[in-house]
Design a protein around this nucleic acid. Structure first.
Lengths: 168, 168
DNA sequence: CGAGCGCTTGATTGAGTTCAAAAATCGTGG
DNA sequence: CCACGATTTTTGAACTCAATCAAGCGCTCG
């Protein structure tokens, strides 16, 4: 553990922890205060979609850090559990980390959400989410670029928009 | 620019820069030494797939930082260009950043690749990529979890594997 | 004013989902 | 160590969403 950094500082309370296969380390909606360094074993993090289907965000074997990438103390989007009996080092997210560190964490959080969306949500949901999240960008770029960002063709986006209009 | 941090330090050579709409700031395959803070205007980063189709990784308007998330000096995977006339602050990636910082950057890089793959590559390519990248994980988790990570159903993965075997 | 680009619309195709059920594998208790 | 139940994987059929192919319209900017 020589590599504790500004965001993640060693949690003196928790430290090393033995976890059994199947044990849940973090639940969606809980305040996310920790990350987990995997010393031995295998963890995974995953999100549930609206149908209750699991979407694995990442696996973490020896040497990896598994975390929900939200700011310290924010509600997490992910579950974290053990796929094997494991030894993990619990690391506290540092709420007083430099603001740049928090920005980087937020940056990762955006990517995390995007991955989950690409895996779990249909194009129309991704489009609506984009509309809500980046209202300023929409005015400034052609549709085909929004399609490119969403991972669909311009034709498909046009069709989706047509269907949205029809319903109104 | 009060928020320069350990990974990104102000580049005294370059500093503030005016870029015209359409101007390319970074090309795929070039050594990625800089990130770009957008003071005014709009940038985007994108990847090209094997068919030459563009897949936009992110937009960056005022206040955002657009970067190719690879270690300082590594070859980039992305193009970065200006969608509007812009004023950007060029920021040098610091090759002597603490190793933890580089690890975080690498972490973001993994997510970046995953997003590009989810948008541009069919399930079978994502599966093969996973096989190459995480050979250890495959031995340790059931197929249905790999399917979940890839963003497809276990049935679809089984079918893909069946087709791979047939070809051999 | 014309050429090209972007957006739309429709027809066809294809990858992946859903539903269902059988076959294979795993884990656990006896 | 075997047997049984549970879980995982495979297979197949019907369906759905989005890609591709193709054509037409409207705008703009050169």
């Amino acid at each position: 553990m020589e590599n504790v950094n500004d965001i993640l500082s060693l949690d003196s309370k928790a430290g090393t922890k033995q976890v059994k296969k199947g044990e849940i380390l973090q639940k969606e909606g809980e305040l996310s205060t920790s990350a987990f360094y995997v010393k031995k074993g295998l963890l995974r993090s995953y999100a549930l979609d609206h149908k209750g289907k699991e979407h694995i965000f990442m696996f973490g074997s020896e040497g990896w850090i598994v975390a929900d990438n939200v700011a310290p103390g924010e509600k997490g989007d992910l579950f974290i559990d053990a796929l094997e009996d494991s030894i993990v080092i619990q690391i506290s997210k540092n709420p007083t980390a430099p603001s740049d560190m928090l920005k980087i964490l937020k940056r990762i959080g955006v990517l995390q959400k995007r991955i989950i969306m690409l895996m779990s949500a249909p194009a129309i949901d991704r489009y609506n989410h984009f509309l809500e999240t980046y209202p300023d960008i929409i005015q400034r770029v052609p549709q085909k670029m929004i399609a490119s960002y969403l991972g669909i063709t311009p034709q498909a986006l046009s069709t989706l928009r047509g269907e949205i209009n029809k319903k109104k």
